[in-house]
Design a protein around this nucleic acid. Structure first.
Lengths: 329, 329
DNA sequence: TCGCCTACCTTGAACGATCCAATGCCGATG
DNA sequence: CATCGGCATTGGATCGTTCAAGGTAGGCGA
């Protein structure tokens, strides 16, 4: 159990002053070649590691990024966020940042938590997920000039702040085109009630694709809350129509799984495509639209480090999902 | 955008010294009633929040707990860790701690990360998940007297360090007894190769329960790597026996789902019970043994705060799982 | 009146890093 | 030879908090 190794220990060991060691760490180019090497060797030899707390107190930066972890209300869709979180942690690690978790129920409490984290831990930035219309969180952060990125577009003012998102419309369009190519003509959509940015986006991809081939007349569109039971109920209603659809594009894997079960139970041949490519979809063989979550996370970190280092780049990024085919379509 | 509010600001506002403010925060009982009240009012009025970095520099404690986030190799079983993580974040929040994430591939890299986190961030404690025989991580931490708790027993030396675990044997025993009560006699076990602590534990519950009723002779026991395909293959092998089992207890939901699909595809009536009560099990209606992950997380935090505050309590805790019945058994 | 104790509060120093201003060193130049 | 400029290096101050030691007033007993 060695003594505490500080910048002074390194300085003594390398026969230089503390400031020179600090320069080697922060502005290496102003230190002479051989001095730099000597200091670096001392750092390695002593196993020195800069104390974040001390650095933070002077610089006001903590190299910490906060992300909210959801209450996992829905076991199926929760996995999407978890995969994103993992990607985020990995990329942040590589960029020298660490990820701090927090929970909050409701926007007010979340904003209170921002205040808390900023005051107590000097957080460098936030990553928000699941943006919605008129999001009070982004307004609060923007007002205080706190760096942040959202995974999800701001649905009201497109250029308000840096964001990364996946183009849901492209995903459902891809799914719809695949079904059309397979010979389907009556292709339904099963999604969420209008008003949510994400849901409307996914619906739009299906709708425009159907319109392009002049089939939007014969295309039933159902809206319900998310859930397996809800999906099953709506699918049964669809199958009971006079001219029932032969395929259905869904806004989530929960709805898709419900629809898939409804079809199986009633012995109907119904092609189903879900959204998010969750483990459940993979497990039961459901085709689904897959978001590039790892890349989205990496882009978020890139954007943040850009902002933090004062070199903000193109701050809006729309990624493309991919259709994963299994035996449900 | 007000000025930075420090302990000195509060002190001026309340007409006392910095130290008195500090005392109000840390050792309130030594401050006179009305002084205490005056300081508290100033704190609220100014919106003061203690700066963690400064506090940490003095005390050496960061109020930060580190947890590793897994690479989610398996989408099904990954959800167990995620639920645990959520519970941990919530409980830690309530206890005044924050959760820091990290990733690492392999034990060596994980230990290097410990070193890094301890040196740079002065982490207070670690929560480890997924213990195994001869775990080098716990040895490293114990040697340096770093506080930590594991979620999962140390399989070699039971009393080496604080841990919380769920009694897998009780879970599979419960499942087995349920199947016996439902009239099954030929009850198989489908698990992992011997040698993993968790897997052996789950197998033991089934084996002893079958032995208790003298049925261990007619009880096939299969071992394979985890996975849906593997579960399906082994289940088919079981069903091809001369006296095929009428029920199977599985070590995971992945294996159970495979077995369940094998039975459905071959038109066989096979009762299946999985383990972990993952979203997939819930989605497809698979009965499963459910771990009290929220409570496990809460106990981990309790143990840690106990150790950190110098009041260690009974440091080993074995929780009981519950059988969740759906229509697969 | 004095001394001592207790209860409460204040002052100075320290944690480990960075920033700022000042110093020493070197060769080049007038 | 004296002066200058450029650059590496040095010492001191600083961030916000807690720790250790020091002060002050009032109460009590002799």
């Amino acid at each position: 159990m060695g003594e505490k190794v500080t910048i002074a220990t390194v300085a003594r060991h390398a026969q230089v002053s503390r400031q020179t060691v600090s320069n080697v760490l922060n502005t290496p180019h102003i230190v002479r070649e051989d001095t730099r090497r000597r200091v670096r060797e001392a750092i390695v030899a002593l196993g020195y590691r800069a104390n974040q707390a001390a650095r933070q107190m002077r610089t006001g930066r903590s190299r910490l990024i906060a992300v909210r972890i959801e209450p996992t209300r829905d076991g199926i869709n929760g996995s999407v966020l978890d995969r994103f979180l993992h990607g985020l942690t990995e990329t942040a690690d590589a960029a020298g940042y660490r990820v701090l978790l927090y929970t909050a129920v409701g926007d007010d409490q979340e904003i209170a938590t921002y205040d808390d984290l900023l005051g107590a831990y000097d957080l460098d930035a936030f990553v928000l997920t699941g943006t919605k219309h008129g999001d009070p969180r982004t307004a609060w952060l923007a007002e205080r000039e706190v760096p942040f990125v959202t995974f999800g577009r701001p649905w009201d003012t497109p250029e308000a702040h840096p964001w990364v998102d996946v183009d849901g419309a492209t995903g459902t369009a891809q799914a719809t085109r695949h079904l059309l190519a397979a010979g389907h003509r009556r292709i339904a959509f099963l999604g969420w009630p209008a008003g949510s940015g994400v849901g409307d986006d996914r619906r739009a991809g299906w709708r425009t694709t159907m319109a392009e081939v002049g089939l939007d007349g014969a295309a039933p569109d159902r809206a319900t809350e998310d859930g397996i039971a809800e999906g099953e109920r709506e699918a049964r209603a669809l199958l009971a129509l006079d001219a029932p659809p032969t395929a259905v594009v869904c806004a989530s894997d929960s709805l898709a799984l419900g629809a898939w079960q409804a079809a199986r139970d009633t012995g109907t041949d119904l092609a189903v495509v879900g959204f998010d490519d969750t483990p459940v979809a993979a497990a039961v063989g459901l085709s689904s639209v897959s978001q590039p979550l790892g890349e989205a996370a990496a882009r978020c970190v890139e954007l943040l480090t850009g902002v933090l280092d004062g070199q903000p780049r193109d701050p809006q990024l729309l990624l493309h999902p991919a259709l994963v085919l299994r035996h449900s379509a």
